[in-house]
């Protein structure tokens, strides 16, 4: 009886090993800058901050739960058809997310357009399912999914912060949490005519274009690898 109780406790255990599953992908094995997973949709949504935060939450939901369910089913999936089973699980979760966003946050859904659907072929869910969830217990796979999507989300938020601030002069435009720091116009942090000491700044249109994301990501990789030298020889 006590053995069963112990096992039940250890199912949801959160010790040092589990904490490492969550924290490691944020720097050492970051999905975008180290594993090169999920770059596709990561860059295209980052011109504004709010859509990229929503996108990160959607990815968190999909990756965590697809890892969990795949790991539950891992002993029953024949290895020849495992790709199709994984794709169906991911596609189901993505459909749930898409319908939810369409119902509760229509403007964001419209902004993200096809990129919510592209979470299916985003390499993060598939990569983590293949590399981790097919060989580990459900709770650990769940935490691994959470950690990896946190690493993904941090890169997304950093890129979109720089791009929105320099490209549009605003922060979190269009969201309920819109930052109101200067003047009456809430959408513009800098480049507002009401604030005379900041009106020298004119928006840098290059930052709103897709290519800016490439350069910013390259600089992030450069900084990360300079401070974390053991990552240098990866790919």
């Amino acid at each position: 009886m006590t053995e069963v109780k112990e096992r039940k406790l250890s199912f949801f255990a959160f010790g040092r090993k589990e904490r490492r599953l969550v924290t490691e992908p944020i720097n050492d094995t970051n999905p975008i800058t180290v594993q090169i997973l999920g770059v596709c949709s990561a860059l295209a949504v980052t011109s504004l901050m709010w859509p990229s935060i929503v996108m990160s939450i959607a990815v968190l939901f999909v990756v965590a739960f697809s890892s969990f369910f795949t790991s539950l089913l891992r002993n029953y999936i024949p290895s020849q058809v495992r790709m199709i089973v994984q794709l169906v699980i991911i596609a189901f979760l993505v459909t749930v997310v898409e319908l939810f966003l369409k119902a509760y946050s229509f403007p964001v859904w419209k902004q993200l357009s096809v990129f919510i659907g592209l979470i299916i072929t985003n390499c993060i869910p598939m990569g983590r399912l293949e590399a981790y969830a097919m060989a580990n217990s459900p709770w650990k796979s769940f935490l691994d999914g959470v950690g990896n999507s946190l690493g993904y989300g941090i890169i997304l938020i950093v890129i979109s912060f720089i791009r929105e601030l320099l490209g549009k002069g605003s922060l979190m435009a269009g969201s309920p949490l819109e930052v109101k720091l200067i003047g009456n116009s809430s959408a513009y942090l800098i480049n507002t005519s009401e604030v005379s000491w900041l009106n020298w700044y004119s928006n840098n249109n290059l930052m709103s274009l897709p290519v800016a994301a490439m350069f910013i990501l390259a600089i992030i990789i450069w900084i990360q690898r300079s401070s974390n030298r053991k990552l240098i020889n990866i790919s």
Partner: peptide, 8 residues
Amino acid sequence: PAPLQGLG
């Protein structure tokens, strides 16, 4: 520069 090689 070494940190920029490859992916960067």
